[in-house]
Design a protein around this nucleic acid. Sequence first.
DNA 1: ATGGCGCGTTGCACGCGA
Length: 260
Amino acid sequence: MKIATWNVNSIRTRLEQVIDWLGQSNVDVLCMQEIKVVDAQFPCAPFEELGYHLYFSGQKAYNGVAIASRQPLLDVSCGFAPTLLNIQADWDEQKRVITGKIDGITIVNLYVPNGSAVGSEKYEYKLGWLAVLQEYLRSLLLSQAAICVCGDFNIALEDKDIHHSAKSENHIMASEPERQALRDILLLGFADAFRKFTSEGGHYSWWDYRAASFRRNLGWRIDHHYLTPALYERAKSCTIDVAPRKLPQPSDHAPVIVEF
DNA sequence: ATGGCGCGTTGCACGCGA
């Protein structure tokens, strides 16, 4: 069983690359972020022709998450509210969460807010959103034993997840409050699948479009799979596939795949 | 220090991403 996460940066623009990659990688589940399309316009047909079922929560122009799965997902829900019944509704206005269950594994597909700049209004929104996410996962853990939380976290937890020329405490995605918010979430009982197999730095999942960052390998590892303990033990590999990032007109993110 | 590239938009410059 392979579960992949990929910020595709517009599913309509990236459709051919995503479909090609699905056909080659043969993953069972693909979690996508930044689909940037309303539900009525999601291009379902090419996925269905490959044998995938589609689940999505989209909005116009920004954000949006989707899951393509070979087997139908159970208990699909969008946003925090179905689990956090008392949450303020506006935390679900931006479409950043979709959850479903397959083979006893609850998959939570996330697009964590970017945060713009440390100290900005969007940064405060990101920290607030992460606090809501913590409560969401705490609540899920009450009823679900095997959880895979994956997606674009927009946080590099350690300095070795960041290329040498960008290490800055006040950099968005690396500031201490963001890292602490993510550590607090992991303390609920999640471990990084990638770090089960690879301890050294220099492995990245996102490279800025500008300044030839990919060619110079000036990247960040910000796309993650976080697993509950028994699932973590079952993980057989976790890899970043940089091949799609080399194509013309790529997403700025590469897919990350965990295998059980 | 700044901006760089790419996406979508009742588009033709701008907000946003990270």
